[in-house]
Simulated assay, not measured.
Amino acid sequence: MADLAVSPLPIEEEESNNFFELLPGKVLDFQVNHPVQVRLRLPLIGYETGKYIMLKYPSTSDNFNDVLIEGNVAIIRYLLEGDKGCCFAFKATIRNITQSPEKLIYLNYPKKIENRQLRAHQRITTHLPAAISLNAPDQSNIELNGIIVDLSLKGCGFTFKASSGIVSVKQREIFVCVTHYATGEMRIPARVCNSRNEKGRVNVGIQFNEGDQQVATLLEQLFIDTSIL
């Protein structure tokens, strides 16, 4: 399956803080607008709170010497799914570019980090075995088995393990397949909205089709109060 890039997300202030907490290896969206706009996906190497954030220099054949320079301002974005379901973003000045032992980008630690909720509806954390299958007559037997990690009337987060670090799920129509002792097997029509692979764990954001009563039935059988969703 083809890899799915994260869509551009604007900085919109709803609430802010100056707390940055990510594990090394998390891929961040890095954008510089001067003298030309460049947008990259760079892994986080490390950081020291209040001092700096360290990113890996891009390992492509392109020459970024005119934009990745000390003093230039970068916009950094990253997603946190799960309970948060937020896009975080901040501006930071490039502090230094090191050449040895690895080529790295040092950013000044941000004074303010903005975040924006990605979901209009609250999701409840679950650990529900499920599968997703392709919504196509000739491919109904193709399934990915995994876990529904959060759930609401409008959508869910689905996670499965992949053997490759490049496996992703395309944006397309699917079925979410759930078997419950009280309701039997459900095939809930839905659509993949986004997908990302973090070291072999693929997290898929799924939107249910409007008005499908199976979702409300499933939430009722799981003793989830739909009035809060």
Rank of each mutant, 00 (worst) to 15 (best):
S152V: 12
E81M: 10
I174N: 08
A162M: 03
P8L: 09
N108K: 06
C156L: 08
N63P: 04
M186K: 02
N145M: 10
N108E: 12
T183D: 01
E220A: 12
T125G: 06
F30P: 04
T49V: 14
H121F: 02
F90M: 09
P8E: 08
Y57H: 12
S163D: 13
V215P: 03
P58F: 05
R191D: 08
K154A: 14
Q139F: 03
P58V: 15
K91V: 06
I45W: 00
Q37S: 09
E15T: 14
N209H: 05
I142G: 01
A89T: 13
A5W: 00
Y57V: 15
D150H: 07
V73M: 02
V73T: 10
N108P: 04
T183E: 03
L9F: 10
G25K: 07
L153Y: 01
E102Q: 12
E114G: 06
D66P: 03
N108S: 07
T125Y: 00
V36D: 03
A74Q: 04
L42T: 12
V204T: 11
S61A: 15
V36K: 03
F175E: 12
R191H: 11
I148Q: 03
Q122S: 03
E14D: 10
D3I: 15
Y52P: 10
D225A: 10
K154N: 12
D62S: 14
S195M: 02
L134F: 09
P24Y: 04
V73L: 03
E102V: 15
S61R: 11
V149A: 06
V36T: 09
V32E: 00
E220I: 06
C177P: 00
D62E: 13
H34L: 09
R116S: 14
L134N: 07
F175D: 14
Q207Y: 01
S163K: 12
V6A: 11
F88Y: 15
Q213G: 04
P129K: 08
L219R: 01
E114A: 12
T126I: 13
C193K: 11
L107T: 13
T60M: 07
